[in-house]
Design a protein around this nucleic acid. Sequence first.
DNA 1: ACCGCCGATTCACATCTGTGAATCTAGTGG
DNA 2: CCACTAGATTCACAGATGTGAATCGGCGGT
Lengths: 326, 326
Amino acid sequence: MTENEERLEFLGQVAAWYYEDDQTQADIARRLDKSRSMVSRLLTEARELGLVQISVRFPLRTDSALEERLCELFGLAEAHVLVTGEIDHPALIRQLGRLGARALQRRLRSGVGVAVGWGAALHSVVRAMPEIELEDVMVLQVMGSVGDGDPNVDGADLARTLAGKLDGDFRTLSAPVIVDRPEAAQSLLQDRTIANTLRLAESAEIAVIGVGSIDSTLSGLVRAGYFDERAIERLKKAGVVGDLLGYLIDAEGNVLDIPENRRVVALHPARLARIQSVIGVAGGVAKAGAITAVLRSGLLDVIVTDVATAENVVAQAGAGRLAEVK
Amino acid sequence: MTENEERLEFLGQVAAWYYEDDQTQADIARRLDKSRSMVSRLLTEARELGLVQISVRFPLRTDSALEERLCELFGLAEAHVLVTGEIDHPALIRQLGRLGARALQRRLRSGVGVAVGWGAALHSVVRAMPEIELEDVMVLQVMGSVGDGDPNVDGADLARTLAGKLDGDFRTLSAPVIVDRPEAAQSLLQDRTIANTLRLAESAEIAVIGVGSIDSTLSGLVRAGYFDERAIERLKKAGVVGDLLGYLIDAEGNVLDIPENRRVVALHPARLARIQSVIGVAGGVAKAGAITAVLRSGLLDVIVTDVATAENVVAQAGAGRLAEVK
DNA sequence: ACCGCCGATTCACATCTGTGAATCTAGTGG
DNA sequence: CCACTAGATTCACAGATGTGAATCGGCGGT
C-alpha cells in the first residue's frame, strides 16, 4: 500500500513536471536518468490512473425564457436550457453534462443519497463533476448494467466514479438492466443486495437520470442489443416513445403494461416520486418526444436540456394543451 | 460581447475535440478546413484563456500526530501537515497549495468575505482551488502588490483569480506593498479605496495568508528588491525573522517597531484577530523560523505546512517552552 | 486606383512524442 | 549454476506538434 502510494507520488511528480511546469519529456528523462520513452510511458500510466485531470471549460449560455416556460408547463423546480452554437452531438452531450453537474452540485451536501441511472448524458455529468469534499455521501445505481455494449455508459462504473469524486460510498446493482424472462427479473429484484440498494435509492434525496429514446441510434437499450428493428417497430405501435430507468413509457409518461416492462431490473419510475430532487439530463431533438413524455409524467423536478430540444418540447406540450382544451 | 462568446465557444469546441476526444490536430484541421498550424495556435489561445484546465491530483498524505501536536502547542483549530516524499521545492509548494485549498474550501460558503495575501504558496492555493458555485463571495487583497518581480505571486491577480473561481466579487489594493517613505504609506492607507478594502478585509470571515522568511532566496519581499543584502543583515540583527502581510516580525511574532514597518501598505496583522478563520500556508524548512514566530503570535487558526518544517517548528517551540520553564 | 499596414493564415522545418520490437534484469525453479 | 520468464527499459522510427518566417487578404488613407 505504501509502495503503491509512493508510486502514485512519483507518477504525480512526473506528471506535474510535465503538465504544470511544461518540462519536455526529454528534460524529465534526464532528471530521472531514464530514457525518454520511459517517461512517455510513465505519463501514460499517470493519465490512466486518473492522476491528470484535463477538462475544457468555458462559460455555458442558457436561455432563461425557455427555462421559465418549461418550469411553468411542467411544474418543475428548475430548468436548464443550454444555448448551443453549431456543435456536434458528442460536444452537446459534454456541455449538457457540465450543466447537469452544476445542477447536481448545487443540491449536494454531506449525508445525502444520490440515485443515478446511466446513459451517455449521465456519463457526461459524472465526468464533468469536480471533486468535492463531502462526508457520508452514498451513490446508488438504480438500473442494471448493460453487459456488453459501450462500457462508457455502464451504470456501475458511473456510480463508482461519482462516489469517488464525492468522497463517498456506493452501491451497484450487479444485474443486467433487462433480462430474458419476467421470472428472472422478479427474483433479481427480490435478491437481498439488489433490493437493499433499491430501497436505499428510493429514500435518496437526489436522483440523476437520463431519458432514453426508442430511436435506434440514440437508445442505450437498443444499442446494447436488447431490441432489434422488428421489436422496435412493434413497441412503437404499442405507443412506446422512450424509456425511463429502462422501463418503456408512452407519450404521457406512463410505464406501459407490456411484457417488456416485466423484464426490467431497475427502480420503478413511480418510486422516484418520493425523492426530493429528481434531475433529468437529456438533449438532442431526436429525444424531444421521449423527454416530453417524461416531463408529462411529472416525476422530474429539474430538467437539463438544450435549446433546440426545449423548443421542440414546448411546441409539443403546447399542442397537447390545445388538444386537451378542445 | 456575443462575438467574443462565440469565439470562446469555438475555441472550447476545438479544445474539447483535442483534449477530450483525443483527436489529432491534423484531424481537427481537416474538419475546420484550416491548416494544422492554425489549430495548434487555436489550442494555444484556448489554453491561455484558461479554457483548458489541466491539473495533476493524487492523494495527499498527512501526518496526524504532528498535526495534533501543532494544534496543542499553538492553540490552533486545525493543522495540516503534508507528508512528502523526495520532492523539489516547486512540487512541495504545489502540494501545499492543494492541501491549503482543501482547508479553505471547507470553510467557504455563500456570502463570506475572504482576505488573501500573496506569495508563492498562496498562488499555489488559488491555482489548486476548484471552481465552486457560491453566491456573494467577496475576495479582498490585503497587502499591496510588488510592482516588478514575479507576476506569478502578485496579489491583485491572485484575488481576481480566486474570485473568478468562486464566482464572486473582489477588491484589490492598487499600491505597492512597501513604499519609500512612511508618509507615503500613511496617505495610501488613508486613501478611500484602499481604506475601504482593508475595512472589508478585517471584517472578513476567512483569511488566507503566507509567511515570509527573511532569507534572501525565499522571501518575496527580498526577491522583489525591497531589501538588499546589507539591509537584510541589519534587519536580522534587529531581530527580524520573517514577515507577515509584509510587516517584519521577530521570533515571538510581534510586529517590530522599526522604520521599515511604517512603510508597509497592508492590513496590520493585529487586525487578523477579528477574523474567524485565519489560514496560514507555508512550507520548506528554511521558513521554519518565520513560521514558528507567526504561530507564536497566536494570529493563526489553521496552519498548512510540510512534515520537515512542522518537525522543525515543534522542536523550536519545544525548546522555547523548556527555556521558559527554566 | 493604388499603397501600405496589420492581422490571419500557411509553409517548412526542428523538435517532441508514442509505440512496436529488441534488449536488459532480476527473480524462480530446476 | 543455468535456463527461463515476466516485467522494466531502451532503441528506432513514424507521426504529431510548435514556431519563425513568408504569404495572403481585407481595409483605410491618399
